[in-house]
Nucleic acid binder design. Structure first.
Length: 499
RNA sequence: GGCGACGUGGCCGAGUGGCUAGGCAAGGGUCUGCAAAACCCUGUACGGCGGUUCGAGUCCGCCCGUCGCCUCCA
């Protein structure tokens, strides 16, 4: 159906902006690396998932048939890829021992819990469900088979402690990250190798033998668990075939994760693994790197849960908007000011929707044509290396058009406005929630009391007792409630105030 | 040391060599019993130094600075 401009994206593989090339015309095979579920995902994780979501939405609106795969890593991998000692801890094991981990019976339970939390936050941010969301633990057989194949083809070798990929057997190793010169890599770090039988410091684990690990599977090499990189190679191949059109993830994954994926997959298939690589930059919070020690580790639930629950009380779609207010490839500084601006924009959107719903009267559509032009601009901006700031600007211009028409807004124009907002939402997901979780609106526990006061104030206004009316306004304001008077009556809402 | 991204007005941020980006914040105004919302008006920025050009925020060179990866991390 729909068609539009070609999608141009920066390709890490070539260090240049290129048109997305499809292996099969009309179809997009897209893989995006998901998180390890050992704690709540933070907004940095979600910025990267959001990049994938926008690409998915964009491709769909352009009429492509998209297979969008994003995994859940529910295996606790080694904290250091090289550390192959049998007592080596992994992140899940660590999480289990931490204070938050006390309530879980075992790592499986912990993984289950944080998977659930991830899916909730995913919906709250209006991230669409992928076509397939595979889990590492459910693809163990394929992972073992892949390791066997690599051994058979001479790309891997076995030691007492595990199976390693032989980087020397894959000359193109380094083509994604530019880490071509092994000798130039920091030797101090590289020499922290616990397996003396590893042949090359660059070699990475495909399988680790460990009969004591909290998660273990039986393999031709005994009990153990898979290396971190192999799961993505396997799941991508299983659902998308040998060559992907597009592979995305956070910038930190470029090396070693994606580099190793390429090595494994191409060593097995002999074909290019992915033609286009997109990496989302890390975000900072108030100018600082986000880290637990700095206490600026922001999760979606912390920002979106109500103030009574200790959260910031931010509208989830405003958070989504804030996360796309910077370009995915530029350093992004997440600040309260940005969030505030996004909250404001969301309020404008809500006001516009109300306006459109109330519009009546005959007359020609005086909005549709101009809005369509803006839709094209949004789509073009996204096709141009996912220029979300430019896209948001066009959205705001559209809102301005709608608001600016308030008096002449007849039904036909309003219908065009509603249609436009829906189309914008298909592309950006910032207009209204599309998932059941996000649609649920909780009844405000104080609603009855507030409405009683509001009625009292209305009566006071009708009898022109403005002193009384203002006193009630004051009282509600101190409760964090804002009242809006209009010809149709008075309404209220909780004031959104950040910091 | 290697690889890469980036430096625009108080803040965020777009920008194809020549024509007002836009937003948030601020100030002023219209409307409103008051307020909110909405709308209108105001503010001349492009890290530094050279170069190319009739003309550079936009191209080239050098310098300075910020950030990321190279080690678990989205």
């Amino acid at each position: 159906m729909a068609s539009g401009p070609p999608i141009k994206l920066y390709n890490t593989l070539t260090n240049s902006v290129e048109e997305l090339q499809l292996e099969h015309p009309g179809r997009l095979a897209f893989y995006s690396c998901g998180p390890t579920v050992y704690s709540y995902a933070h907004i940095g994780n979600f910025r990267s998932f959001l990049t994938a979501d926008l690409l998915f939405r964009l491709a769909r609106t352009l009429g492509l048939e998209v297979t969008y795969v994003t995994n859940i890593t529910d295996v606790g991998h080694l904290t250091e890829d090289d550390a192959a000692d049998a007592d080596g801890e992994d992140r899940m094991a660590k999480a289990l021992q931490s204070k938050e981990g006390e309530r879980f019976a075992n790592v499986w339970d912990l993984a289950r819990y944080y998977t659930g939390a991830l899916l909730q936050d995913w919906s709250a941010l209006n991230l669409l469900e992928p076509t397939v969301r595979p889990r590492a633990t459910e693809h163990m057989r394929e992972q073992i088979q892949a390791v066997e194949t690599l051994l058979e083809k001479g790309h891997a070798y076995e030691t007492e402690q595990g199976i390693y990929f032989s980087v020397a057997s894959f000359p193109e190793y380094g083509k994604l990250s530019g880490n071509i010169n092994a000798d130039a890599l920091d030797q101090e770090v590289r020499e922290v190798v616990s397996d003396p039988d590893k042949r090359d410091p660059r070699d990475f684990a495909l399988w680790k033998k460990d009969a004591k690990h909290l998660m273990q599977w039986y393999s031709p090499w005994g009990w153990g668990f898979p290396g971190w990189h192999i799961e993505c190679s396997v799941m991508a191949n299983r659902y998308l075939g040998e060559t992907l059109d597009l592979h995305a993830g956070g910038e930190d994954l470029t090396f070693p994760h994606h580099e190793c994926e390429i090595a494994q997959s191409e060593a097995i298939s002999g074909k290019p693994f992915a033609k286009h690589w997109v990496h989302t930059r890390f975000l900072q919070v108030e100018g600082q790197k986000m880290s637990k020690s700095l206490g600026n580790f922001l999760t979606v639930r912390e920002l979106t849960s109500s103030k009574d629950e200790g959260g910031w009380g931010v509208d989830a779609l405003a958070l989504r908007m804030a996360l796309m207010s910077g370009h995915y490839r530029k350093p992004f500084n997440f600040t309260k000011a940005t969030l505030k601006a996004s909250v404001k924009h969301r309020e404008r959107i809500a006001a516009a929707i109300q306006l459109l719903e109330q519009a009546e009267g005959d007359g020609p559509d005086r909005l549709g044509e101009r809005l369509e032009g803006l839709y094209d601009r949004i789509q073009q901006a996204l096709c141009d290396d996912l220029n979300t700031p430019e896209a948001l600007t066009a959205v705001i211009e559209g809102l301005k058009l709608i608001h600016g028409m308030s008096k002449g807004l007849n039904r036909a124009s309003a219908d065009a406005g509603v249609a436009w907002l829906n189309h914008v939402n298909d592309l950006l997901g910032i207009i209204h929630p599309e998932t059941p979780e996000a649609t649920e609106t909780e009844e405000d526990p104080e609603a009855a009391g507030i409405e009683a006061l509001l009625r009292e104030r209305t009566e006071a206004r009708e009898s022109r007792d403005f002193a009384r009316a203002d006193a009630i306004r004051e009282q509600l304001t101190s409760m964090g409630i804002e009242i809006m008077d209009s010809a149709e009556g008075s309404t209220w809402k909780r004031r959104s105030s950040i910091g």
